[in-house]
């Protein structure tokens, strides 16, 4: 993440490519379980970019920018990371009781300009921008990007110590706990943009298992003034949430646009 600028830049490159070429494609992390008991629980996670949820059928989601935050806010190592034709995968050993946030996050700048009559693109961090991008380039367009794709798993009792916002990009913090979701019950979450409540943001919610249905079954809710949105789960299963902001409130001087997106995979259990 932020302490790994190269990985972040690489993740950003992939994110930008995917966003540009195929808005319809969905990025996701899909955990093998979200509610665990026992003395030595493990979660294995699939990471992919696909149309249908949650099937690996298009591209793997690269693991650059992967960060697992465990109980108490500590960073946890993942094991057995691998990237195949259609998916990446890795394991997380939940060695401590509590909730884990498993995220792929990246942020940085994208620039587009014309040099010697040719369109050029650049991606990187704010620190290298001035040195690597000719500041007097023609048609220079700079966009600030932030992307976060995450899911959650809990060993034993859920807690919020791994769920604090980083203050960067678009993020979701719990009102309801993300590993305490049940069919027919309303859950509430808050979206934050750069650490502040993100009002009026549309959140698309898509149930998994689409291969065996005719209709997508998705719906959209909008955050209120306090950034909070609510969802009532019609049936148990895995759900995919996506929200994004595209405006001209970039914090980096020289960036005209800001794009921030957020994706979460949530498991809803039967009663």
């Amino acid at each position: 993440m932020l302490n790994r600028p190269l990985a972040a830049a690489a993740a950003l490159a992939l994110a930008a490519a995917a966003a540009g070429s195929a808005e319809a494609h969905r990025m996701w992390l899909h955990p093998s379980a979200t509610v665990l008991s026992g003395e030595d629980p493990w979660v294995t996670v699939d990471a992919a970019i696909s149309n249908d949820l949650f099937y690996f059928e298009h591209h793997p989601l690269r693991l650059d920018g992967l960060d697992v935050t465990g109980p108490g806010g500590a960073s946890f190592q993942v094991e057995n990371p691998a990237t195949g034709r259609y998916r990446s995968t890795f394991d997380v050993n939940l060695t401590e009781p509590g909730t884990y946030r498993i995220a792929i996050a990246s942020s940085g700048l994208m620039a587009s300009y014309v040099e010697d009559g040719e369109r050029r693109r650049w991606r990187g961090g704010p620190d290298s921008f001035a040195a690597e991008v000719p500041q007097d380039a023609q048609e220079l367009q700079v966009t600030e990007m932030a992307r976060r794709i995450e899911t959650f798993a809990t060993r034993g009792a859920p807690d919020d110590s791994a769920l604090a916002a980083t203050g960067r990009g678009l993020e979701m913090v719990p009102v309801s706990h993300p590993n305490d979701l049940f069919e027919g019950e309303e859950a509430r979450f808050q979206l934050l943009l750069e650490g502040e409540p993100a009002a009026g943001v549309a959140v698309e919610i898509v149930p998994g298992g689409s291969r065996y249905r005719d209709q997508v079954g998705d719906w959209t809710v909008t955050t209120g003034e306090d950034g909070v949105f609510a969802a009532t789960w019609p049936e148990p299963g895995m759900y995919w949430l996506e929200a994004s902001v595209d405006d001209d409130n970039a914090s980096f001087e020289g960036a005209a646009r800001r794009r921030a997106s957020y994706v979460a995979t949530l498991e809803v259990l039967p009663q």
Binding site: V35, L36, S37, G38, E39, D40, P41, T154, G156, A157, P158, D180, F182, L269, P270, Q271
Partner: peptide
């Protein structure tokens, strides 16, 4: 051995939610 039997306590999911997990 190694308290492995606790691995499946969460399958009693209503009890697990209401009290077991604590």
């Amino acid at each position: 051995a190694r308290a492995e039997g606790t691995t499946w306590l969460k399958d009693m999911r209503q009890w697990w939610r209401r009290e077991g997990r604590a």
